[in-house]
Design a protein around this nucleic acid. Structure first.
Length: 272
DNA sequence: ACCGGAGCCTGTTAGC
DNA sequence: TGCTAACAGGCTCCGG
């Protein structure tokens, strides 16, 4: 489900019900959901800890606890988080449950089981290698230029590399390249300053669009409250193969880059 | 340093 | 209708 706008939507929805709550119990039905430490150790170390913040870094959710540890969750492809009454009937794909001190539970549902739970003393152990946050003021055109400086990789692969830039995934990479008018296979080191400036603006534009629309419910993503986002109605190219480009009418094309579906308008995003 | 492919999982959809 | 293959918004590991 999750790219930066979807994770941000989840964080905003969870902040109120989780802030200040104490975790009283962790139940788990798929031990591999817990990446580190062992399930038993996580249960022991998290018991009685209070959640002091609900934050996002890239596509990770961060829950700092009152003893300095941080609970970290990554939703990967199909993860879903919600705070519900403990009376809510169980779901087949809910593999990890954090019981709270108010008869509610944070439930981590994850059909494909790619998601991960971490409990660490230092959050940097997990998120330390991530590139800059694209919506922070510190992410300037110059920063983007430095990140891609001299790299020969195709732009699409650069945008998906979380150590270059944190939070962009397959949808928003395609969307950003469309608005920047850049072909996904363009080599990063061939960009002019004007093109880097356009790419920088496009990245911020599409991520902000996604956040305003509370995420893209294109396949399985839904918000914590179970409702759909609205970004799927505002995508320009992603999974619009064969449909006319909104700008020029040319049919949108699909190609595979780095093993990922990639969508573009061949006229608005010329190869050179 | 970079690229492609496999692997991790289950569910949905496209095609025969 | 039923079967099979392809595909899915992420990321890591391996070999070349």
């Amino acid at each position: 489900m999750p790219e930066l706008p979807e994770v941000e939507t989840v964080v905003r929805a969870l902040r109120r019900p989780l802030l200040g709550r104490t975790i009283t119990e962790v139940r788990n039905y798929w031990p591999r959901h817990v990446a580190t430490p062992s399930l038993a150790e996580l249960q022991q170390r998290i018991h009685g800890r209070r959640i002091t913040a609900v934050n996002r870094r890239g596509k990770y959710l961060l829950f700092p606890l009152d003893d300095g540890q941080t609970l970290i969750i990554h939703l990967k492809m199909s993860g879903h988080l919600a705070v519900v009454s403990r009376e809510t009937p169980p779901d087949k794909h809910t593999h990890t449950i954090f019981a709270l001190d108010n008869d509610h539970e944070l439930r981590f549902r994850d059909t494909r089981k790619f998601g991960k739970v971490y409990l660490v003393e230092d959050a940097a152990d997990i998120v330390g290698k991530l590139g800059p946050e694209p919506l922070e003021d510190s992410f300037t055109v110059t920063v983007l230029q430095e990140r891609i400086n001299g790299r020969k990789r195709p732009l699409k692969l650069m945008l998906l590399d979380q150590t270059v830039l944190a939070g962009v995934g397959n949808i928003y990479a395609d969307e950003a390249l469309f608005y920047a008018g850049l072909h996904p296979e363009r080599r990063a080191n061939t960009l002019t300053t004007a093109e880097i400036t356009a790419l920088h603006a496009a990245i911020q534009k599409v991520l902000q669009m996604g956040i305003e629309r509370e995420g893209a419910s294109i396949s399985s993503y839904i918000k914590p409250d179970g409702e759909k986002g609205e970004m799927q109605d505002a995508v320009a190219v992603f999974r619009r193969t064969g449909q006319p480009c909104y700008r020029c009418g040319t049919p949108i094309e699909r190609m595979v880059l780095g093993g990922r579906s990639t969508h573009l308008c061949p006229v608005c995003q010329p190869e050179t």
